[in-house]
Each structure stands twice: as structure tokens, then as C-alpha cells.
Design a protein around this nucleic acid. Structure first.
Length: 265
DNA sequence: AAGTATTGCAACCGCCAATAG
DNA sequence: TCTATTGGCGGTTGCAATACT
């Protein structure tokens, strides 16, 4: 399998992009798309390799890129995601809308890594493998890592957005997650009569337009105080869907800025 | 003010997986 | 099934800006 030659041959340009090059690339992609990066520079009249064009577009010129400093919430998100995903920058970036893997990688190496030297986000919990769930945020006792205690110690109350696809605009729900002795996660759902939106982040239509807008993806936050009064139980196994469910929870986390406290399995 | 060290970040490099033929 | 090509990813580099001495 031969390696495709890259831009160094035949006078293809390297180094920082000029505004003129940016304009050419932007206008070409706007008019023609980028179905073939390798052919793109020649077609667009750029003295760059396709790889360079792709990088410039995805890391800098894409219209949906969010510029500017990372917020505290974004930094916290990166730290928490990195704890669980490791150096999977693209996976982390996928959960931070408008941010690129390169940007996140940079901010990690130049900023967050230093912060973590003095920060112990999970003083009380063990570090997580890729397939483990996020840690409990509150004080953790030694028994919290003991599976035999999970069924009694990991109840979670999670609010559902008023504009969830499954609910009318005036409805909210509380969901409790419980891990039973058979390592099953039980979701207990209850509609909440209160129409107060004080607990909920503002969510626009786009929230439900992406991969979250599936039947089960309606949980957007958590609150420890809401009590379950009426149960509507749904059960799924934790073994086969573990990673998929992890992704779901991370998406919830990113969308809401709040991390549901889940048990470690 | 000048020299040096550090920081931040855009861009590149090289590997790998997916895909087409 | 094999090979060539392409896109994507994580690691690394280079350099301008800034801070420090």
C-alpha cells in the first residue's frame, strides 16, 4: 500500500495561509463542496495539497467554528471528557459544538494539563476506563465503588426538558437511574407538574435536531431533589450497550453543561 | 532597552482505517 | 482478496507574541 505523496513536491506551498488563499478555499467549497480533497486544490487554483486544504477548512474556515476563548464550562467539559476518553481529541471535539480537535488538543496541552496538576476531580473515585461511566461528583465513600452497594447508592434524579419530543411544552419529567443487583440500569420516569424552567438550561430547536432526538434521548439535566412519585420503568442491559450509552450521556452532558451522576459498573 | 525564556496556536507529519476498483 | 487511494486522527513542530530578567 503506497503512501500518497503530499505537498512537498512540485512547489506546493506550505506554512501559514494567506487571506487570499482562505478566500479562494472558502468560495470554492461554498460553490462546489469538498467531495474530493485531493482534487480540490487543483480545481480551486490553490498551490496547496489536499490535506492542507482540508485541515485549514476543518480547523479554521468552517462556518460553524466557534472562535474565541474557551469558557469555564467548556474547559470543565474537556477535563471530564479527557478523563474518560483520553487523548481521543476528535471524540472530545464531537461533543463540543464549534470546537475542533486541534483546538482542544492545544488548549489541553497549553492550559488544562497544568490546571490538572493542582486539581483532583475525582479525589474519591478511581480513574475510569473507556467503558466505565463518569464518576459521582459528590463525596464518595469507599463503598460507592463496591457493586454490591450500587443498587442502593446510585439513584439519580434527572429532569427532562419541557420541549422534549415526548412531552408537551408544559411538561417536565424526573428520571431516576438505579442499578440493580443484576447490573441492570433501571430508568424510572415521572412527569412533573411544575412548569418552572429555573432548573433547565435554555434549549433551542437544534437541541432535538441532532442525534439526541431519539426516543430515549430526552434527559437533559439532573437534580437531586425531585422525587419520583409515579413510576414508568424502562430497562436496558448495561453490558451490550455500555459504550453507546456512554456516548449518549456525554452528549447530554455537552448539551446541558451538566453531568448526570452515574454509577460505575 | 535588549536578550532570553515561555506560551499559544496554526500547521505539518506520519500512521491507520475505510473504501473503491 | 489484494492493492492503491483517500480522509481522518493524534503527535509534534515552528514561529510569533508575550513575559521575564
Amino acid at each position: 500500500m503506497g503512501r500518497a505523496p503530499c505537498c512537498e513536491k512540485m512547489g506546493l506551498k506550505k506554512g501559514p495561509w494567506t487571506p487570499q488563499e482562505d478566500n479562494i478555499l472558502i468560495s470554492y467549497i461554498q460553490n462546489n463542496g469538498h467531495s474530493n480533497w485531493r482534487a480540490l486544490p487543483k480545481l480551486a487554483g490553490l498551490l496547496r495539497c489536499g490535506k492542507s486544504c482540508r485541515l485549514r477548512w476543518t480547523n479554521y474556515l468552517r462556518p460553524d467554528i466557534k472562535r474565541g476563548n474557551f469558557t469555564k464550562e467548556e474547559e470543565d467539559t474537556i477535563i471530564k471528557l479527557h478523563e474518560n476518553l483520553g487523548n481521543r481529541w476528535s471524540a472530545i471535539a464531537a461533543r463540543l459544538p464549534g470546537r475542533t480537535d486541534n483546538e482542544i488538543k492545544n488548549i489541553w496541552h497549553t492550559n488544562l494539563k497544568k490546571k490538572l496538576k493542582n486539581y483532583q476531580p475525582c479525589q474519591n473515585s478511581k480513574r475510569h476506563s473507556k467503558t466505565s461511566h463518569v464518576s459521582n461528583k459528590g463525596p464518595t465513600t469507599s463503598e460507592s465503588s463496591n457493586n454490591s452497594d450500587l443498587s442502593t447508592s446510585t439513584k439519580q434524579h434527572i429532569k427532562i426538558a419541557p420541549n422534549s419530543p415526548q412531552l408537551s411544552s408544559s411538561e417536565m419529567s424526573s428520571v431516576t437511574l438505579v442499578v440493580d443487583d443484576n447490573q441492570m440500569v433501571i430508568i424510572k420516569e415521572e412527569k412533573i407538574e411544575s412548569s418552572s424552567s429555573e432548573y433547565f438550561p435554555k434549549i433551542d430547536e437544534s437541541f432535538w435536531a441532532d442525534e439526541l432526538s431519539t426516543e430515549n434521548n430526552m434527559i437533559i439535566g439532573h437534580d437531586q431533589e425531585i422525587q419520583v412519585r409515579e413510576e414508568n420503568v424502562d430497562i436496558f442491559t448495561t453490558s451490550s450497550k455500555m459504550e453507546e450509552d456512554m456516548d449518549f450521556w456525554y452528549n447530554v452532558f455537552i448539551k446541558t453543561g451538566d453531568l448526570p451522576e452515574l454509577p460505575e459498573f
